[in-house]
Design a protein around this nucleic acid. Structure first.
Length: 501
RNA sequence: CGCGGGGUAGAGCAGCCCGGUAGCUCGUCAGGCUCAUAACCUGAAGGUCCUUGGUUCAAAUCCAAGCCCCGCAACCA
């Protein structure tokens, strides 16, 4: 029986156009989803956008649009980018959709009736300029103008009630919060008493949100709204069968929203009496050179520029192989080019080229017979045979970079093997032996392509089609002898470095 | 003394849990090959494994103290 796999990205806030960070998380989710689909798992991949809240309202105002019109304009920027990035999401949720709003209101009502929401007067420091409450520390920093103490009635969610249960849950489930250091971070955070979460905003202050069903004077706080997307999209409250089929799932998030997910969301789920997510995985950030990517520094990388220059798959490959999941990574154009050239052009693409060239020259363009393996073939075969299992295990453990490296190790080994066996020499004295070498090398390439399908869907498929093996699997030897190879342009043309001026 | 993570060749990382010749990718240098996208292969140079002290026959690995960097610290993607 196959397992199920439900993976989500955060729903992205639509106050600005998507950047490399959004693209990264989404590609990561896509790669995992594609891997699991290939394994035959019942897979569901959700992404979407978060459209309520103050910043959206303000961004709309600036453009002279209604918030809804602003959202309708921005949401397609995400969907069209995902299309260009080859994202295979099964659904795309927008929090302004009725299907979502209805469920959020239903949940608010339910939690209210269960007694986990109460009203209280809240007093705190409020920055009129920023239109939000700030902490004392922030006030001391002097970065906020027009700070004053205001009192306001608001609704609160009894997060504190679930603190002990949450601590115990995290301690008992080592795979719940990952990587480990984030888990420790949250356990440390939970050592201090939790306060309850303010989940309302008076309409006078913010109107762009989901109305609280039991008090029309308020809308709900964006996080209480947004987090629910993970279950509203898969049928919570409307399609029980679907919901039970996929929940709980894996949430991929950036480290910036760890607290909201591991504390707010989980306590909400406790209150709803639902199982907690299987895993919340917080990945790191892409740093641009030495500094964090930020609009004010003008170093925001737009994924589209890269795709246009080097192709989607190269970008996907770079992002997936360069970042060790959970740690920050450095994004520089030099780095990108280095990795592209060394892994994709020199190792992978060039191997395909030399192998197909030799098959063309000495074997009439037809994939030769496998022959009887010698020790040299046996070594490559052995590596190839366990590769699938190794990669699967690494993917299951969210070690995408290591999984990719495992595949590249086979390619490197085959380049070595080619050098040792020298089929271009062998062909002159022992044509079947040369054929045996080329079959082995080609089969390794096929296997690598099958495993890289999740990361580079287009390029991997091109390779498989060239080899006449588009629907082949992970078993060594599936490559068919006798297939005629078409001619094809270099798979990954080298990027020539422009000289710096 | 808030909590947590980390400091290993020029760069990025693995090894540390379960002590025993310090490894991978990129870069540099030399050589080889010439099937290939000036690519591929081999070899070399390059390390006080942050510091100090301890345990041990033996420490990057365990213990202690210190120095430095980075996250988190509540309503803020």
């Amino acid at each position: 029986m196959n397992a199920k796999f439900y993976v989500t990205t955060p729903i992205y806030y639509v106050n600005d156009a998507p950047h490399i960070g959004h693209a990264y998380t989404t590609i990561l989710a896509d790669v995992l989803a594609r891997f699991h689909r290939a394994l035959g798992d019942d897979t569901f991949f959700l992404t979407g956008v978060d459209e309520h809240g103050q910043k959206v309202e303000q961004a709309a105002q600036k453009r002279g649009l209604t918030p809804q019109a602003h959202c309708d304009d921005l949401a397609p920027r995400f969907t069209s980018l995902w299309k260009k990035l080859g994202i295979s999401n099964d659904d795309f949720i927008r929090t302004t959709q009725d299907r979502h709003k209805r469920i959020v209101q239903m949940i608010l009502q339910k939690v209210y009736e269960s007694g986990d929401i109460y009203q209280k007067e809240y007093e705190g420091l409020y920055s009129v300029a920023e239109e939000r409450f700030i902490t004392e520390k922030e006030a001391e920093s002097g970065q906020f103008r027009e700070v004053k103490t205001i009192k306001e009635k608001n609704y609160f969610f009894k997060m504190s009630k679930y603190q002990d249960r949450l601590i115990k849950y995290i301690e008992d489930h080592p795979n719940f919060l990952r990587p480990d250091h984030r888990r420790n971070e949250m356990l440390g955070f939970l050592r201090q008493p939790l306060t309850d979460l303010c989940i309302s905003r008076p309409k006078a202050r913010l109107s762009w949100g989901i109305e609280i069903p039991f008090d029309r004077e308020y809308v709900t706080y964006v996080w209480f709204d947004a987090l629910i997307n993970y279950i509203s999209a898969i049928g919570y409250g409307t399609d029980d069968a679907k919901f039970k089929r996929f929940w709980p799932g894996v949430h991929l998030i950036g480290k910036d929203i760890l607290t909201t997910h591991s504390i707010y969301w989980t306590t909400m789920l406790f209150s709803l009496d639902l199982p907690l997510p299987e895993t919340i995985f917080a990945h790191g950030w892409w740093l641009m050179g030495e500094s964090k990517m930020s609009k004010s520094l003008g170093n925001v990388v737009r994924p589209l520029d890269l795709i246009e220059q080097h192709g989607v798959d190269a970008v996907r490959y770079y992002l997936m192989s360069e970042m060790i999941l959970g740690q920050d990574a450095n994004f520089t154009p030099e780095n990108f080019i280095k990795r592209y050239n060394s892994d994709l052009a020199n190792d992978f693409g060039n191997l395909l080229n030399r192998v197909s060239g030799l098959i063309g020259k000495n074997h009439g363009n037809v994939i030769p017979e496998a022959g009887t393996p010698t020790e040299a073939e046996a070594a490559i075969m052995a590596q190839g045979q366990i590769l699938g299992k190794n990669v699967q295990a690494l993917i299951a453990d969210y070690k995408v970079d290591a999984a990719i490296n495992e595949v590249m190790n086979l390619i490197r080994a085959v380049n070595k093997y080619m050098e040792m066996q020298a089929p271009w020499k062998l062909a002159k004295t022992d044509l079947p032996a040369a054929g045996r070498v080329l079959y082995t090398a080609t089969e390794a390439l096929r296997l690598a392509a099958v495993l890289l399908k999740a990361v580079m869907p287009d390029k991997a498929m091109i390779v498989l089609e060239i080899l006449g093996a588009h629907d082949s699997g992970l078993t060594w030897g599936e490559l068919k002898s006798g297939v005629t190879l078409p001619s094809f342009p270099p798979l990954f043309p080298r990027i020539e470095l422009e000289k710096k001026t």
